[in-house]
Design a protein around this nucleic acid. Structure first.
Lengths: 166, 166
DNA sequence: CTGAACTTTCAAATATTTCTGAAAGTTTAT
DNA sequence: ATAAACTTTCAGAAATATTTGAAAGTTCAG
């Protein structure tokens, strides 16, 4: 398989994976494209390579920047903007973990907290509260692990992983 | 907040969380409903409580059964089927991890494996292969952690978590 | 075997998400 | 100040995902 075919295959697969994790296909594809590009890439480049509109590229680039895994870059003597993805996979993973934690785990824990105050002493209510309690417990523990991961540097995490996978 | 309101809020939130993780809203809502139900629940019950059609409930129940986190239950002297969710959150999490591993991590590793064979000795190709190598490394390590989690019982995982979160 | 009770299927309808493209906005050079 | 070069916005269009509902299928008691 030659480079262009491989790159294309990677972009497609990364896009497909993204969509099964609640990330839109084009955003994931743009990210993939930047990941495997050695040079900073312009909006036009992306439009051409992925065959999508300027507006689409612009919006998804903003989102990637917002997630903190892509940055603008200015080439001297060039008017237009170029973009690069953080190439450190561990840093990208930590950043995504950080964002999803903020956007999903924290709000869910807040909901659970509210639900703890459900009134009633009947068996149904007790059972409901018990389940919410278990979910809170589980979610908090998962949150703890994610938090540790976010705070870790690669070295720490690598060592811990070694221990974990034996 | 009284029980019905709380239950409703939980079902809504679980549905919303599901959709940001690539699980369709109704499937997540049905799961939520079963999670907080003490008694086995019939298709009709779900239709009524979530205000969705019979076909929709049926399809999503099949999917939940397929994921291995919901089971059919027959009440004696009753013709129709009832459904219950596995109430052990850790078991549910392990099951979901197992399925997503099979459906997502494994195929992605297979794609990476193919991409390793990209021909070419130029700098671009080398860089591409290096990135694929890093992604493979990262994904394999994540896979190792997930695998360990899947094989763990709650006790083991709880202890490890304690170590992890200090 | 027949019909009642229930489940499954799937084509069409609906809802949701994503994308386009052109207009408006911004920045910089002259 | 003007214009060229580029970026952003967003209403409507297109694509995708989900849902409906009615017909077909299944099971079982009588």
């Amino acid at each position: 398989m030659h480079l262009e075919e491989a790159r294309q295959k990677f972009v497609q697969s990364w896009g497909a994976l993204g969509s099964s994790w609640g990330i839109n296909r084009t955003m994931a594809q743009i990210h993939a494209l930047l990941l495997v590009s050695t040079e900073p890439v312009s909006t036009e480049d992306i439009m051409e390579q992925l065959q999508v509109s300027r507006g689409n590229v612009n919006m998804n680039l903003r989102a990637l920047i917002d997630w903190g895994i892509v940055t603008k870059e200015n080439k001297i003597g060039e008017r237009r903007e170029f973009f690069v993805a953080d190439k450190d996979i561990w840093a990208v993973a930590r950043q995504i973990a950080r964002e999803r934690r903020k956007r999903e785990i924290e709000p869910m824990l807040r909901v659970f907290d509210e639900l703890k105050n459900t009134s009633g002493t009947d068996a149904e209510t007790k059972e409901f509260k018990r389940m919410i309690g278990e979910l809170t417990d589980f979610t908090s523990k998962a949150d703890g692990v994610v938090d540790k991961f976010i705070r870790s540097d690669e070295h720490w995490f690598y060592k811990t992983l070694l221990k974990l996978v034996k």
